[in-house]
Amino acid sequence: MARKLTITALARAAGLGVATVDRVLHDRPNVSPRARMQVAEAAARIGYPLPAALRGAATGDLAEVTLGFVLHKRGQPFYQRFAAEIGRACAARADLRIRPQIRFSPSQAPDDFAKEIGALAGDCQAIAATAVNHASLSRLAGDLARRGLPVFSMLNDFAGSSGSGYLGLDNLRVGRLAGWMMATRLQAPGKVAVFVGGTRWHGQAMRDTGFRACLRDHAPRITVLDTAVNLETRAVTYEATLDLLERVPDLSGLYVAGGGMEGAIAALRAARPPDRLTLIVNELTPDSRSALADRYVTMVIATPLEQLCTDLVDQMVRSVLTPGAKRPPPRKPDPLLYLPESV
């Protein structure tokens, strides 16, 4: 009788460690597409029995999955890069043929996000979106979930308990990082301001909360002004920043907790010399990189998009292939920090 093949034999044939092969066979995270392919090819050579998805990777007869993504701000470099990273993460999967469908909401209105999510619902097996918090969107996520269509939140947890998971930074932690830098940079009593996009971005509200809490803990001498709304637009942020500089001549710092940082950078370039005001923003773009180099921006807190998109696609695929299975919540990646000497 032929001897039963072991995982050790498969690992030897694949040129990988037993632990790595075990993760591949049990579809656990932190496995590269190349490792999946090596295991699949080695199993085909020695006759080791594989799960269906890995058998497809070995034979080239790959199962196809269609995933839908809704972003916004089509013209902004950050979201253009986000879309590109989603495409790369889908293409990198060696065990499946993933067809990404990426749409952009024309505005930040809840109805526009709902329309784009609804447009994907008929063709896709899982959906992820960067949407605002609104009762209509959490209801939509719940309705789709009951129909067997998982909905994931990206960057801002709009779906909450109705969704299948949140993929993004720990926003409270992001705010505390901004507060720590502000406290460290400002060694004397002063006034600082915070911009958020609006009341429908709960992730930004969490950043505002973390920012204020950190300053209370480490720099109670610093006064934080009332939170201002910039609608995440460059034009509103530009005018609001100029108005702040005029009304509060002793303003020492500004934290832009969401979008619109380009307006704050442009206003400081027009009204102040570099290094006079501590400006902290989110996401590394051509504008923020240039402002770091010119010392108009003190720190950029950025989302590791490559890691985020890899984790996102993995979570979406798992929800499709093993519906109803209990999965650990998605991990929150560590933010990337950029300083003037980093760029």
Score class of each variant (00 low, 15 high):
35 A>P: 03
113 F>P: 01
270 A>W: 09
14 A>W: 12
114 A>Y: 11
80 Q>E: 15
171 N>T: 01
337 L>G: 00
153 S>C: 04
55 R>M: 13
306 E>P: 06
185 R>T: 14
237 T>Q: 00
224 V>G: 03
212 R>K: 14
111 D>E: 15
1 M>K: 14
341 E>P: 01
224 V>D: 02
331 R>F: 02
119 A>D: 12
10 L>I: 02
185 R>K: 15
10 L>S: 03
73 K>A: 11
151 V>C: 14
98 I>Y: 05
59 T>P: 02
134 H>A: 15
97 R>T: 14
213 A>K: 10
325 A>F: 01
26 H>D: 10
56 G>I: 13
206 M>R: 12
66 T>V: 14
193 A>V: 07
221 R>C: 02
322 T>W: 15
330 P>G: 07
200 R>C: 04
198 G>M: 06
296 Y>Q: 11
281 V>H: 05
37 M>G: 02
126 A>I: 09
143 D>Y: 12
106 P>L: 09
306 E>S: 12
270 A>H: 14
34 R>P: 03
183 A>N: 08
225 L>M: 13
217 D>Q: 14
294 D>Y: 07
252 S>L: 03
46 I>R: 00
161 S>G: 06
84 A>T: 10
37 M>K: 15
51 P>I: 00
333 P>R: 11
301 I>F: 09
324 G>I: 04
321 L>F: 02
201 W>G: 01
